[in-house]
């Protein structure tokens, strides 16, 4: 009951402080096909960083490789100094990385409450249920519903909400706005901003450039399994044409 979202705001560090996640020379394969080529990227503590790119560019695969769900990978992924490249997904999660997958990963045969309580706590200081219900009031009304009865927006909120309970302060979020109505996208944007304020570090995959632009500190452009460019958010206006060229919009 004591934990509120604003509470940890005070100890939120500035974005420049230290690298939380450092990916260097990351290569990845789906079977025989080489899909990630020497990906380099850094996410600093307290930042929201996006991976932008067209469909099939390798953004989701990059998140899966970080999470340990891409079985065949090489290079270096360091999280708070720990090398992840040889660790299985369950150990990576235990280090404090939360994963919100592009299909939302809701368990249809579990109730909303069971989905919420499923991920084990990996660190102290996660949100308690009242704090989660404050952030996502719709979920509280649907605790007994089964996961497969939820709307897309509710599933997305549940997917984010259940990570907040675990105490993981680093979240990999894969296209949280995909296929959702503008009003829900707005709510999710609001949530991401509050999480950032609460001290979360977020690596966000997005196709929705306008959504990304309103939230992120920095952006990486991913093309054909490579990081080809990067921009700070305040550089976007000057590079708009270039970015739109990359994204094909």
């Amino acid at each position: 009951m004591t934990h509120t979202i604003e509470k940890s705001q005070a100890d939120t560090p500035g974005p420049e402080t230290q690298a939380m996640l450092e990916v260097q020379g990351l290569n990845g394969w789906y079977g025989e096909s080489h899909v990630l080529h020497d990906v380099n990227l850094t996410v600093n503590k307290g930042e929201v960083v996006t991976l932008l790119g067209r469909n099939g560019a390798g953004k989701t695969t990059t998140l899966k490789a970080i999470m340990g769900l891409l079985k065949s990978r090489s290079g270096s992924i360091r999280f708070n100094g720990t090398e992840l490249i040889d660790l299985p997904a369950r150990d990576i999660a235990r280090l404090g990385i939360g994963y919100v997958p592009d299909d939302r990963g809701i368990f249809g045969s579990l109730s909303v409450l069971e989905n919420l309580l499923l991920p084990p706590k990996v660190a102290d200081g996660g949100f308690d249920l009242p704090a989660i219900y404050e952030l996502f009031p719709n979920l509280e009304e649907r605790l007994d519903s089964y996961g497969n009865k939820l709307s897309g927006g509710e599933q997305q909120m549940l997917s984010i909400a259940r990570i907040l309970r675990t105490g993981a302060l680093f979240v990999l979020m894969d296209e949280p706005t995909e296929g959702l109505a503008p009003v829900i996208i707005h709510q999710i944007g609001h949530t991401v901003r509050r999480l950032k304020k609460a001290g979360f570090t977020i690596l966000l995959v997005e196709q929705n450039f306008h959504f990304a632009r309103e939230l992120a500190d920095r952006h990486y452009i991913v093309q054909e399994g490579k990081v080809v460019d990067q921009f700070r958010n305040d550089e976007i206006a000057d590079n708009l044409e270039k970015i739109q060229g990359y994204l094909g919009i």
Binding site: L69, A89, R90, A93, G108, S109, L110
Partner: peptide, 14 residues
């Protein structure tokens, strides 16, 4: 039950 449905996701929770 969750692992029956989606073992990969369950392992991604630790």
């Amino acid at each position: 039950r969750a692992a029956t449905e989606n073992p990969e996701m369950v392992s991604a929770f630790g």
